Simulated assay, not measured.
Amino acid sequence: MNMNWCLIKLIKAAGIPTLLISLTACSVMSREECLTADWYTVGYADGADGRPPSRIGDYRQDCAEYGVRPDLDNYRLGHRSGLDRYCTEANGFQEGVEGNRYKGVCPYPLEANFLAGYNRGKQIYQAKREWKNIQDDLRRASSELEEFDEKINKKERELVKDGLTSARRAEILQDLNNIRYNKQQLQHKIYQLESDERWSKQQYNSLRFRDSW
């Protein structure tokens, strides 16, 4: 809502490092928005987005500069109506799937249905995150395996060089054996990760298809 103006003002006044610290000081409402606000509509929009009613405190602070006091009663009425739209089982499911945090805004009569959907959606989100984390581990391990192959090739080339002393040759062979052992351990890890990845993918897809909305 006037964020661009706020960013420009902070950049000119403080520079990038201070900007990162000062972003929270940006106003939520501009002068024009304070002067023309339909507080029922503002409350409805906040409720429909799952924002807490305490957000009106931000509006009060911003608009005080322009001599405007938010209409608390109309804001609360709008916010409550907005919650009727937000606090549904289907919306709770979507919030959970996206990994959004529930801020405890739903009134008691609506909260049970919202949480039923939210918890199912959160299960899918967590299953997907676990699957993706295993995929990341697998990619890192595969990259590390390639590095071991390069190290082995390098040591094998060293081993056939002319003029090596027996002590140096023994040292290279020991290094080579250590690298091969570590590679073998990594291959076992990759095998386990591949198994875990298949299982996690199956779990994610099972939850996704079972609880799709």
Rank of each mutant, 00 (worst) to 15 (best):
A90W: 11
T88S: 04
E65H: 15
L72N: 07
Q61V: 14
L72K: 01
D84F: 10
R76S: 04
L77M: 08
R101F: 10
C87S: 04
R80A: 02
D73I: 11
Q61Y: 15
Y75V: 03
L72P: 02
G99F: 04
G92S: 06
T88N: 00
I56R: 09
Y86K: 06
S81T: 05
L72H: 06
Q61H: 14
R101D: 12
R76I: 09
Y75Q: 09
R69T: 15
E89R: 15
C63G: 08
E98I: 02
R80H: 12
G96R: 00
G96Y: 03
D84M: 10
S81H: 06
Y75I: 03
N100M: 14
C87N: 07
N91S: 04
G82S: 04
G92R: 12
E95M: 15
D71K: 06
V97L: 12
E89N: 06
G96M: 09
Y86F: 15
P70L: 05
L77S: 08
D73L: 05
E95Y: 08
R101E: 13
F93D: 08
I56Y: 09
D84G: 06
Q61R: 15
R60N: 11
Y75C: 09
L83V: 08
C87A: 00
E98R: 15
Q61T: 14
I56G: 03
D84T: 04
T88C: 13
Y59T: 07
R69G: 00
S81W: 03
R76H: 13
Y66N: 09
R55T: 10
L77C: 05
Y75K: 09
G57L: 15
Q94V: 11
G82L: 05
R85G: 01
N74E: 14
D71F: 09
C87I: 01
G57P: 05
N74G: 02
R69C: 00
G99M: 03
Y66H: 04
R60M: 13
